[in-house]
Amino acid sequence: MFRDITIGQFYPVTSIINKLDPRVKLCGVVVYIAAVFIINNIFGLLFIIAALAVLIYLSKVPLKHIMKGLRFVWFLVIIAIFFNLFFSDGDIIWRWWIFHMSRQGILRAAFFAVRLVCVIVGSSMLTYTTTPTNLTAGLEKVMQPLNKIHFPGHEIAMMMSIALRFIPILSEEINKIIKAQLARGADFDSGGIIVKAKGMIPIMIPLFISAFRRASDLATAMESRCYSGGEGRTKMYPLRYHKRDTVGYIVLLLFLLASIGLRILMQQFVTIGRI
């Protein structure tokens, strides 16, 4: 079940991207997504793709691994293409029943698909190159200013890291419960939706009970090790900026400016390829 999910799983290599401070990378994702939506012409798009290619190259995550992660979003891309392709108005070049294809539609579909893939790949680069612990530490730090308005930044980060640790354990547990009920002759395949939903009860109840038991055990274990929330807590590996992080921020700024520039400048000189 969950084990197949490749999106968002840390890929263990050492690279310059890997070493960057998670805050830089979090900021990077925001900038990158903004840039994808700022650009509006083919040159901008090429620029974004080129930037992504450099990022992937620097991160040392194999392209094959990234493509595997995309498996689950292809259908989303296809739906998006489908609607843009067959329902866009403009210079109609083909028409059948309620479907019609226009030149602008084709362009828009292609543009949209590429944008979507860029956003997904770009943001998943964050999790490919950042360990869950680092990621949550980064989030906690980023959310720290919100503490003043009693926003539970530490608690959210702690919950996230616990969730990340327990996903494989719980998925194993689900697997085991399903098998155990199958061994008692359960049939999860046949029957209508109501029969199927009812058939889930023997899985859901043991799963909930087990999750609660684990939660209570974990809470006891944390308490016995002096845990009392984020206040007064220190870190073994506190986040500290290095020179490479400053460079990272500057690169991000330049990247953002370039995307805006491409939009404004190209608007004046180029009319072809604008969408």
């Binding site: 419960i177 009920q181 061994a183 023997p202 109840i205």
Partner: peptide, 27 residues
């Protein structure tokens, strides 16, 4: 699977029904 019965480790974690009798009837 019914002819070859398999009891998993910690099988009590798979109990789910309201009463013991109902649970044992599941199979």
């Amino acid at each position: 699977r019914c002819r070859v019965g398999l009891v998993f480790q910690y099988p009590e974690y798979q109990l789910f029904d309201e009463t013991v009798l109902k649970d044992v009837c599941y199979g």
